[in-house]
Design a protein around this nucleic acid. Structure first.
Lengths: 227, 227
DNA sequence: TACTGTGAAATCTTTCACAGCA
DNA sequence: TGCTGTGAAAGATTTCACAGTA
């Protein structure tokens, strides 16, 4: 009784979604290592995961395992690619050609088989026209809407200065981009119909700072790990 | 009855910790705007937060508000700085002077009053010695331990190639660094006594991909926002 | 009066533990 | 036998709603 997707897509826990992407990465490693079948237990040991969680996460989408044996690596990998929607080409535009925007445009994880950075925009006329790498020239933000008509992108990456972030987010939404990965450390009002994920590097560091040992304290605080 | 910290530090929910850092940022904006007092309700409206959550998050640490009035902005800001431990200097080392490492070394959020990037390491002899900016020269990884004796850092940022990530993480731990912000998209075994936060950019994008509309589907999926 | 601080309820997520199948 | 798939329990987090107070 192998069904694809047993509950509505938006009922899948957010954290499950993220783990799928991690599982996919692990399976790709196993595939490269020539492993054909793996049990949830072995998977957990090898990649520091939780075996029950692994099984339950997958169970939202169907029955991919074989009782008594485990999961067929190649098959499960392909299923995950389908579930995540990585079986087609996903194009991304980077908004902001600063330090971070430039690094992200060249980031390996954003330039894979399915994911592609196909555009980068900036407001600075000095930067516009510059070639980031063969085939990737910096365009002016005002060209976003005409660009989208020729070469639609599905995801925008926000890496602009804080002052203009809200404005650029609205332009992105107006251009019809529905998914945004935001790196700007500012509270944004998300336009209706847009899905936004924020990566806040300063928050990450400050939450590490919170747990740093302090002079006034004694006693050990047992550290833990996230993600 | 104003106590600082009513429960043990490691009993504070992880998500609360992160929000503290966001609250601090909001308060800094309010301070710059000359706002002296703010209610949890106003706070929520202005920054798209949840007012009950704001109150409850703060309640882990003491009573900072005035009933009938709200919270004194300056005072609460200073409390949060103390709670997060940003009232002292926190030094960070970037491991890996590639694309991302270089961008992070120059990232504004990592170079503030309290946070400072004071070192950057790489294994490539061609990069070693290069000056990233005045006062920040790329060192060879093998110099990490002697460097730590002279200029201890509290946080390491892992931005090295996946193949060497585990090895570098262990070197970092051996050098006595207890907090790691990891950008490498790989499952790492975290050495005992080390706290690690991972930022996985590919996972972020793929979880957006998961929710992208598909050809085979009809019907609207109402999008939402994280963080 | 207009707010905070907070128990209690609701919701969400993880983990347990085992029935059932290859 | 050795595993998966999954209800049910436990645990964590958010939200409600209101007593209490400046």
């Amino acid at each position: 009784m192998k069904k694809e997707l047993r509950v509505k897509r938006n009922e899948i826990p957010n954290l499950t979604t993220r783990r799928l992407s991690i599982y996919l990465r692990c399976l790709q490693i196993l595939e490269a290592d020539g492993v054909e079948t793996i049990s949830s237990q072995e998977m957990a040991e090898r990649f520091h995961l939780n075996s029950a969680q692994f099984r339950k996460d997958l169970a939202y989408f169907g029955e991919f395992g074989v009782r008594g044996l485990g999961y067929p690596v190649l098959d499960l990998k392909n299923h995950l690619i389908g579930i995540l929607g990585l079986d087609r080409s996903i194009r991304m535009a980077i908004m902001g050609a600063g330090n971070l925007g430039t690094a992200l445009a060249g980031y390996g994880g954003f330039n894979t088989d399915s994911l592609k950075v196909t555009a980068i925009f900036d407001a600075d006329p000095d930067k516009v026209g510059r070639l980031m790498r063969p085939g990737l020239r910096i365009s002016h933000v005002s060209e976003l809407i005409p660009f989208m008509r020729e070469n639609p992108v599905q995801i925008a990456v926000l890496a602009v200065p804080a002052k203009v972030a809200q404005e650029v987010l609205e332009q992105v939404a107006a251009a019809g981009i529905k998914s945004v990965l935001n790196f700007v450390p500012v509270r944004l009002k998300v336009p209706a119909g847009v899905r936004m994920q924020s990566v806040d590097l300063k928050v990450q560091v400050e939450s590490l700072a919170f747990h740093l040992p302090r002079e006034e304290e004694s006693g050990e605080a047992p550290p833990t790990t996230t993600l």
